[in-house]
């Protein structure tokens, strides 16, 4: 029975060895001549402007979340709008319920003060 599990052990062993081997090899073989340019953090070619761990106001997240909600609303409403005539009244009622539920969410956020910046 335990023979059947042997390949799993082999995969673990080979992947661990491979990882160690590659890191170790590049560590041993590479020449080290650091210059200020080389020691700079790599940010896709841009020169880093400052510390990335700046603090953001938590209000940005609320705005971002509201954006996602309305973004998704558009994603669902566009296919309905394209096929509006074919879907008829039942489609219209379904879309209305969907928009009503989302509007309830917006009203909730508004009344709870989620849109007040200060």
């Amino acid at each position: 029975m335990s023979d059947a599990y042997l390949p799993i052990l082999l995969i673990f062993g080979v992947s661990a060895l491979n990882a160690v081997f590659m890191v170790a090899l590049s560590h041993i073989l590479n020449p080290r001549r650091p210059t200020p340019q080389k020691a700079m953090p790599y940010e896709s070619g841009m020169i880093p402007l400052g510390d990335t761990r700046a603090r953001f106001s938590v209000k940005f997240y609320l705005v971002a979340i509201s954006f996602i909600v309305f973004d998704l609303e558009a994603v669902f409403l566009i296919p309905w709008a394209v096929e509006m005539r074919a879907l008829g009244w039942s489609g219209f009622v379904a879309a209305s319920i969907f928009v009503a539920v989302l509007t309830a969410g917006l009203v909730y956020e508004w009344k709870k003060g989620g849109l007040d910046w200060d």
């Binding site: 009203v107 909730y108 709870k112």
Partner: peptide, 9 residues
Amino acid sequence: ILVLTILDL
């Protein structure tokens, strides 16, 4: 759940 959401306000 929806009614409660509105009621909460």
